[in-house]
Design a binder for these strands. Sequence first.
DNA 1: ATAGGGTTAG
Length: 663
Amino acid sequence: MSHPHSLVHFLRHVSFPPDPHLLPTALKSCPTLPLARALHATALAAGVARDPFVASSLLHTYLRFGATVDARAVFDGTPRRTVVGWSALVAAHAARGDAEGAWRLLGEMRRGGGVEPNVITWNGLVSGLNRSGRAWDAAAALARMHGEGLLRPDATGVSCALSALGDVGLVSVGEQLHGYALKAGCSADACVVTALIDMYGKCARAGEIVRVFDESGHMDVASCNALVAGLSRNAQVSEALRLFREFVGRGAELNVVSWTSIVACCVQNGKDLEAVELFREMQAQGIEPNSVTIPCVLPAFANVAALMHGRSAHCFSLRKGFLLDIYVGSALVDMYAKCGRVRDARTIFDAMPSRNVVSWNAMIGGYAMQGEAVTAVRLFHSMLMCKQKPDPVTFTCVLSACTQAGLIEEGQCYFEEMQHEHGVSPRMEHYACMVTLLGRAGKLDEAYDLISDMPFEPDGCIWGSLLGSCRVHGNVDLAEVAAEKLFHLEPENAGNYVLLSNIYASKKMWDGVNRVREMMKDVGLKKEKGCSWIEIKSKVHMLLAGDDSHPMMTAIIEKIKQLNIEMRRLGFVPRTDFVLHDVEEQEKDDILAVHSEKLAVALGLISTSPGTNLRVIKNLRICGDCHEAMKFISCFEGREISVRDTNRFHHFRDGKCSCGDYW
DNA sequence: ATAGGGTTAG
């Protein structure tokens, strides 16, 4: 039966009536709805459509293609309408999210058909509603099943309902169901245990998930997986890793879902290098990644710019046919864009068989990150032409593109259009983009007015953006306003004090400088550790500011010293004003020397052959001094260097940067 | 005819 087409061909062209024993087999493997209809016509012509086996096959085949009307017509023509057919119809309506239709059928079967629903009918209803995202209806259906007093929900129904409750965060109902499962004696069922772990995990009850798992007392792989996912959701990455290692050690039969879960867990909790390592280990264990694993691991490659790993995931996906998958495609677009290969990203994007809002956002965001604002905006218009509805993320991408390129009127235009033409209310990040857009262009008062008119409380990013712009344009008054808010919102953020101090210093307002310095002594400051990644010969190196643990650190420092001498000789002046002011003047050079992006570039210079391009990723924004230094190094060493900071890409070449120093 | 676990953009 591997060639249904030939079978259909046979059935249509034989000169004697088709065998009712053959039709169900043909229907079972029938690949399309039109062919099913053709087979139905054949059956009618041959007078066998009412044969119980043929009719049942027709019913299920129509339901498989979602053709509920055809299915119902066939069912009504059936001599004896049994609970099996009714159940299938109810489940199909529920699975399409048609709760009302499903309930109507349930009533019809009892009154019109004189058939009582059984536990399978109810379970099918709960399960279908759950899968179609009608969580409330699913919970209500289970409650009613219980309320009817005739049927006790079994493990299947409880599992489905728990799954639905987790999705909408109805933990109190979930707890009641947990209690029912204990009473009904199905709380040890493997599916119920897994569903409980899943439900508690989605409702932020990290303690409960471990308790349920421990009490279950046996190692079911799906429960293990739910546990890892639950811990991941609740940011307990070390606990998840510890348990995963324990499962491996105890010889649990972990599958591709288990490995995908732990990889996803690491990626979602900022442990990119661990994710890369686990992905490698999974394959060493003989578990082959599938089309879910790939989009899980790709962000890890993107975050540390592991282009070679990303490329091999691309090739693997190509061989496996995963490029047809919208998740895989979107994640590849994002990965290439974040590795600075926006053209490769575009190739993937153009070849995708279908695109959703995530795919478009990834591509538009990719251009924005490159500072290719015009292309980003053009693509946004193509998106609208393709009838793809934009979402809040789309506008974050479009507005940030405008910000990078100083497209002020355009940005303001999209900010208006977003609200009035696309019905997207501005969120914090949209205001942050607008404040940056106006502030960079020197329209500080307009930026301040916008903040004042915000319908909700501005956060630290908003005021931080204003403060940064005040630094660029030397506005002390607004800087003091912004800084006061920031000292309140994020008192431990060292950068804010430094910025304000720098603004005072640039105006020679030494009283202000001293005042800020005093404040810094009083509060416990937290500086986020600068961290950069560079991929050299398929290996990703991580370099931390002020950390000398890299095995090649002596050579790296030597290289930086040598570069500093050359820079000095050629008239390059270090921008020491980007350093914290609580550092003695003579130390400033040394502090600057260990910014992580410089360590990464130095390592790249001494580990690759002359002329090789270098790609560095950094967890903070690049500082002005490093920006100048990169320009110099690109020229002096004859290298192309790209640095992706939290904001965008900087491509250094022949002493110039692609951002045109506007950042 | 019904069941539980992993996925992409900012």
